[in-house]
Amino acid sequence: MLKSIVLLDDNSATNFIHETYLRRVNCVERIHTFTMGIKAIEYLKTLEVFPELIFVDINMPTMDAWEFMEIYEEIDMSLKINTRVILLTTSIIPSDKGKMSLYSEIEAMMFKPLNEEAIRNILGRVFQSNTIIILSC
């Protein structure tokens, strides 16, 4: 079971849906939701142990995923060594795929909203050592 996941999406309803599915899959102890990138960054900068997974909406009004990643990259790598970032979008634009390759910390880009099956697939792929536990949830 993961200790912590961060959800970052400017749409509160989307965060609620994703949090609901994460709880149904029963794969994480704590879920932290943010609707503003700067608030998520401020939170992350207070941590000594980073969440294992961060979901970031690509298109947000005040700070998009790319601006978030620019600041996120500046955080000490030793703090986020076990953290994976997954970008979420409603439409994959070819330029987003190109931008994604500039950030080694981005694990994948996926369509939203997520569902239970997508969450299990993400966890199984990203955290292979947890696959048996996750799939049994």
Results as ranks from 00 to 15, higher is better:
M1G: 12
M1W: 05
L2F: 04
S4H: 11
S4D: 12
V6L: 11
L7M: 07
L8C: 10
L8D: 01
S12M: 13
A13Q: 08
A13V: 09
T14E: 10
T14K: 04
N15L: 05
H18M: 02
E19G: 03
T20P: 00
L22K: 00
R23F: 07
R23K: 15
V25Q: 01
N26R: 11
C27G: 04
V28A: 11
V28Y: 02
E29K: 14
E29R: 15
I31D: 01
F34H: 00
F34V: 05
M36R: 14
M36E: 15
M36S: 13
M36H: 15
G37Y: 07
I38V: 15
K39Q: 15
K39H: 08
A40H: 01
E42A: 15
Y43T: 03
Y43S: 07
K45W: 10
T46I: 06
T46M: 11
L47K: 13
E48S: 13
V49P: 02
P51M: 06
P51C: 15
P51R: 01
P51S: 12
E52V: 04
I54L: 08
I54A: 09
V56H: 03
D57R: 07
M60D: 08
P61A: 08
P61V: 06
T62C: 10
T62D: 15
M63S: 12
A65M: 02
A65V: 01
E67D: 12
M69Y: 11
I71D: 14
E73G: 08
E73Q: 14
E73F: 04
E74P: 02
I75D: 08
I75M: 09
D76W: 06
D76E: 13
S78C: 07
L79K: 15
N82P: 04
T83Y: 02
V85H: 01
L87H: 01
T89E: 03
T89P: 02
I93Y: 15
I93P: 00
I93N: 13
P94Y: 05
S95L: 09
K97E: 10
K97Q: 11
M100N: 02
M100L: 13
S101C: 04
L102F: 09
S104H: 14
S104N: 14
M109S: 09
M110P: 05
M110N: 12
K112H: 08
P113V: 06
P113S: 05
P113E: 08
L114W: 01
N115A: 02
E117V: 12
A118M: 09
I119H: 00
R120G: 01
N121I: 09
N121V: 11
I122K: 01
L123P: 02
L123M: 14
G124D: 10
R125M: 11
S129H: 14
T131V: 13
I133S: 14
I134P: 04
S136Y: 03
C137H: 12
